[in-house]
Simulated assay, not measured.
Amino acid sequence: MLVESPYTPVITAHVKATPLQRFIAAFIDGIIGNVAVWLLMIVSYQLVTVGYVIAIGYLLTKDALPAVGEFLGGQSIGKKLMGIKVIKEDTGESLLGDYGTAITRQVSLLIPFFNIVDVLMVFSADSKRFGDKWAKTIVVKA
């Protein structure tokens, strides 16, 4: 007789996000990431470097950021607005607080020329970028 333990994770089927949803979310996140650069540039050109550090920090960790009230909580601003999220492939958990996995997903986008191929991977059969494969994540509808 098989008895289910209350500690056994239950993985449900998830609907994958479309490439269009992913591209729009990435575009929104790109704008959000650069807001700090623009604002600090208005104040002083000497602060632009600080703005870039903030932007890169956001873009690398955006999927692991903690909740702000009812907002975010393991979703970037772009993903939240598009109704999609990143989850771990094996457990179905969000990346909330898992900065290592979030950064691993984004590293492939920092490599010149390789990032173009990586972005186009969302059109592949499994809809996964190299960053998703390396981090063992999938992007699904929230």
Rank of each mutant, 00 (worst) to 15 (best):
S44E: 13
G33C: 13
G73F: 02
T61S: 14
L95I: 09
E70K: 15
K88I: 03
I77S: 06
Y45W: 14
L72G: 08
M41Y: 14
A67T: 13
R105K: 08
T8N: 11
F27A: 15
I42Y: 15
F114Y: 14
K88D: 04
D126N: 12
G57V: 06
G74K: 03
I87P: 00
T61P: 02
Q21K: 06
P66N: 13
F71M: 11
G131H: 10
K136Q: 11
G57I: 10
G30L: 07
G78Y: 05
S44A: 14
A26S: 13
V37W: 10
V117K: 02
S127D: 03
N115Q: 09
I28Q: 10
M41W: 15
Y99L: 02
G57A: 12
V139M: 04
G78W: 05
L40F: 15
I32D: 07
L120H: 09
D126L: 02
T12V: 08
A64K: 09
I77M: 10
L109S: 15
V15I: 04
T137P: 06
V48K: 14
N34D: 12
D90P: 03
V37T: 15
M41I: 10
Q75C: 11
A67G: 14
V139I: 06
L47I: 10
T101H: 00
R129A: 10
A67L: 00
G78H: 03
G100M: 01
S76Q: 06
